[in-house]
């Protein structure tokens, strides 16, 4: 009986609706192709055999031949390797600091006992809606002696106000009785935060950590204005000079990289493609986690509402 109903339904709906559904799928898959082809094309270019690079056209998605020479050359470049280390350092230290400072502030701001609470809440809104001038921020950073220091880059956006508010909303959901019970036992604020609030907020912290992490990995502009020594540059800045500004000398010309015959054998565009691939790789590695924590969280949140 039940089966009958469902089959009659299935028979009733199709025709035009099914046709449209397939049209939609086709269009959506076209979007996917448009997203993927430029990425796969660069991957193909970077992996192709140097002698066959000229065969790689704009829509080619599979490498012609196979060679890792581009990556070998990049990894042998001290400036490039150094920039990867700098980026990893900025990302790891920056994200840890972000999470520490943001969660401490979110905890304090969600306690009813915080003195001047209203004042601090207004302060947060002020920070959110008033954007300082680039020049004045630059002059302050210069004045406090952070020029040419990775700390100038790490500390910029030490607290993202939007993320702070998200975390505050999350902390507010934690039952106050849990916190109070610990405080009656004489636990300090830091202990309560560390042993009760943070363990209960792991999904939120993971999401924010991933977003902060991607932000740091992708940051290039503050690095470009605050860092003067190329050996301190993060990968994105090297990438900008080498690929976006097409300043091939920035990477190739710096120091003893590889012999001239090797350089002559390689194509710049393949080297540039390899640089882009290296810059994307860490994002790709954490991307499944991002999908798991964020996208799903949003979807489920939407369903629940």
């Amino acid at each position: 009986m039940v089966k009958n109903v469902s089959t009659t339904r299935k028979v009733r709906t199709p025709a035009s609706e099914l046709f449209w559904r397939w049209c939609f799928i086709a269009l959506l898959l076209c979007t996917c192709v448009i997203v993927l082809v430029p990425l796969l094309n660069l991957l193909a270019l970077s992996l192709s055999d140097p002698s066959r690079v000229s065969e790689v056209r704009g829509l080619t998605v599979f490498p012609k031949g196979f060679s890792l020479i581009n990556y070998k050359v990049l990894l042998a470049n001290p400036l490039f390797m150094r920039s990867i280390l700098n980026s990893v350092y900025i990302t790891v230290v920056g994200t840890s600091l972000n999470l520490l400072v943001t969660s401490m502030a979110a905890f304090a701001l969600t306690r009813p006992k915080l003195p001047f609470k209203r004042f601090f809440m207004v302060l947060i809104i002020v920070v959110m809606i008033l954007e300082p001038a680039l020049v004045t921020e630059y002059l302050v950073v210069k004045k406090i002696g952070l020029m040419n220091s990775l700390w100038a880059v790490i500390l910029y956006k030490a607290v993202n106000v939007y993320y702070l508010i998200i975390l505050m909303r999350y902390f507010e959901e934690i039952p106050p009785s849990l916190v109070e019970a610990a405080q009656v036992d004489g636990a300090s604020n830091m202990t309560v935060l560390r042993s009760i609030v943070l363990p209960l907020s792991k999904p939120a912290l993971a999401t924010l950590g991933l977003f902060y992490g991607v932000f740091h990995w992708n940051e290039y502009f503050r690095a470009s204005i605050y860092l003067t020594d190329p050996m301190k540059y993060p990968l994105q800045l090297i990438l900008r000079q080498f690929v976006v500004l097409d300043d091939t000398a920035s990477l190739i010309g710096s120091g003893a990289l590889f012999s001239y015959d090797e350089a002559a054998r390689l194509s710049y565009s393949a080297l540039q493609a390899s640089t882009i691939v290296v810059a994307i790789l860490p994002v790709l590695i954490v991307y499944p986690l991002i999908l798991k924590y964020y996208a799903r969280g949003v979807m489920e949140g939407g369903v629940k509402e």
């Binding site: 520490l100 400072v101 943001t102 401490m104 502030a105 905890f107 304090a108 701001l109 306690r111 006992k113 915080l114 003195p115 601090f120 302060l123 002020v126 920070v127 008033l130 300082p132 001038a133 004045t136 921020e137 002059l139 302050v140 406090i144 500390l155 910029y156 956006k157 030490a158 607290v159 702070l164 300090s188 604020n189 830091m190 935060l193």
Partner: peptide
Amino acid sequence: RKDWTLLILLTPALIYFLVYHLIPIAGM
């Protein structure tokens, strides 16, 4: 009663807001 030790937890964020937001805004 207000818990003044909470301000310690807020201090790093406040210093950041001061240096990267409030002083530059005043400097405008």
